[in-house]
Design a binder for these strands. Structure first.
Lengths: 253, 253
DNA sequence: GCCATGCTTCGGTCGTGGCCGAACCATTGA
DNA sequence: TCAATGGTTCGGCCACGACCGAAGCATGGC
């Protein structure tokens, strides 16, 4: 019936994201889990009707996908590209002059550990990346990550098989600039595998209805033992972001 | 006087980009060169007053920077993050169902070779990346690029010094999905260095007032000789995009 | 069958923001 | 000094779109 007229210009896509209510919904969906229309309405602080309209437009514009399940309608991000776009927009928005908003307790939990689409973010993720580098399991530079031979063995032992057919010395992951910590953490295939594995091991658990992750008792021990975390990893790293970091993290067209 | 209230939320940033006139201006600025307010007005098809308003808002929102020069005002993108954001939005916009718009002659030139912020894009760039991989100068995967030892030597001879202090086997560049070709090309530090070098060698020249690049007579020979281009590199590569390509290219928070 | 719940469609109100004409400021060149 | 050119500010017009109340469909439980 109605032509499927998915948004085809930058302006159309950006305009879809450029509304407070819709942006809030999309941010919530960055958690990686599908949410119902009602939940999204509450998150965006609008009535159900309004939310419905927003979601219909976003579905039309290929930003989200719908899945009917009983009388619920589950929405999720349409593709990793959408998540990527949201992430870069966050980076631009955050690059303003400081203006670090005051941090509530809820925010604090998110700063510690959260999911981001299909991998981890927050201090936990930053500490993980840092630890992997310090122990020569990977090398990070220019927004890319390279797993060393030693790293391959390490991950295999940890229960992550990095596509054995892959010849070694091949870059296997990417890094992202962490919104809250302004440092890099792991994304890409390796990032996703890591999140899956630590969930499987119950080192972290999802907080229902939130992007936050809780580090379990076993997780505390596990991370410290396996990744040799410094004991104060839960505190923000001291020192400022190295000057070139932000610039190097960005890649374009 | 007026507080510098740089946009601080995703919605604000996206909303700034989400207008046809402003999006056109920003796209033009993706060429990497600064443009005057008048030029941008013409590009966006609006009057000077309207453009002035748009530019003021974008400057306020930290999307662009201004530089006065005589009675002209030169505008350019404020940071690589902004370029990155625009790029990912383009990727989302382009990911719709085909709808390949008809290609004019002007578009055709852009498809062949163009600048993208600080590196090259288009068939030339795609062919370059492909050639470098085929000749074992680099390895590409997961959106990251790794320069081989042999590649280091190659680039040094070509006149690009990849930070000699860097230990080898360190990833030095990133890849981007090419808007027109839907294949990867090189960005990051290496991508920028390559563009600089081929401009220096006059293998390509900028087309004034456009993002397009012209491959010079000497360039044709140079690329063929140095990079062993296949002779028909100016034609689009046959075959479709590998299924996983788009997914792998995207990285998130 | 009944009602409760989740979501959508319709109709109407209202505010934000894009656009231009006109006038104004600033720089350059004669 | 006086135009000419490039930009910006001001004021008013108009449209798009965000929002909600009310009503309308589905689905699931009793």
């Amino acid at each position: 019936m109605s032509t499927i007229a998915s948004a085809n210009t930058i302006a159309e896509v950006a305009s879809l994201i450029g509304d407070a209510a819709r942006a809030n919904m999309l941010s919530a969906l960055m958690g990686g889990q599908a949410l119902t229309a009602g939940e999204l309405a509450r998150i965006a602080n609008v009535t159900a009707q309004t939310a419905s309209g927003h979601l219909a437009r976003m579905a039309e514009g290929r930003l989200v996908l719908v899945e009917k399940q009983g009388r619920h309608r589950y929405y999720r991000l349409a593709s990793p590209e959408v998540a990527q776009a949201l992430h870069t927009l966050m980076a631009v928005a955050a690059s303003g002059p400081g203006r670090h908003h005051p941090v509530g307790p809820r925010e604090e939990a998110l700063r510690l550990a959260r999911t981001c689409y299909d991998h981890m973010a927050g201090r936990l993720a930053v500490a993980l990346a840092e630890s992997l580098c310090r122990n020569d399991h990977m090398i990070l530079a220019d927004g890319a990550g390279l797993v060393t031979d030693q790293g391959h063995a390490f991950f295999r032992e940890f229960g992550i098989d990095l596509e054995p057919a892959t010849r070694s010395r091949r870059p296997l992951c990417r890094t992202c600039l962490d919104w809250s910590e302004r440092r890099h953490h792991l994304a890409g295939r390796l990032g996703a595998a890591l999140l899956g594995r630590v969930l499987e091991l119950k080192w972290v658990t999802r907080v229902p209805g939130s992007r936050a992750l809780t580090v379990t008792r076993g997780g505390e021990a596990g991370f410290a033992r396996t990744f040799r975390f410094r004991p104060d990893w839960q505190r923000a790293l001291a020192g400022d972001v190295p000057a070139g970091a932000v610039v190097e993290a960005a890649s374009i067209d």
